[in-house]
């Protein structure tokens, strides 16, 4: 799905720049990233995965709803 910033959905009236950034702007990082993954054919969980795009190392994975609840 892309970067875990998808979790931070703007308010309805946040303005077009904020919305544009939320929907379309992503840094193409070579290194550590936080991704949003989905266990599609399994338990349907959405998870936040902290990983490295160069080495493919996965450091940590958390359930997305727990990340949200902690905010």
């Amino acid at each position: 799905m892309g970067h875990a910033s998808m979790l931070n959905r703007p308010e309805q009236d946040a303005g077009k720049d904020v919305w544009n950034a939320y929907l379309h702007e992503r840094a193409n990082i070579a290194g550590d990233v936080e991704d949003l993954w989905c266990h599609d054919m399994g338990c349907a969980a959405w998870i936040v995965v902290r990983r490295n795009t160069i080495s493919h190392t996965i450091y940590e994975a958390k359930l997305a709803n727990e990340v949200r609840d902690a905010d």
């Binding site: 799905m1 998808m6 979790l7 959905r9 949003l36 989905c38 599609d40 349907a44 969980a45 959405w46 359930l63 997305a64 709803n65 949200r68 609840d69």
Partner: peptide, 12 residues
């Protein structure tokens, strides 16, 4: 999949 995303990620 969309419903799961909205529930888990946007409206838990």
């Amino acid at each position: 999949k969309h419903l799961e995303f909205v529930h888990q990620c946007l409206r838990p």
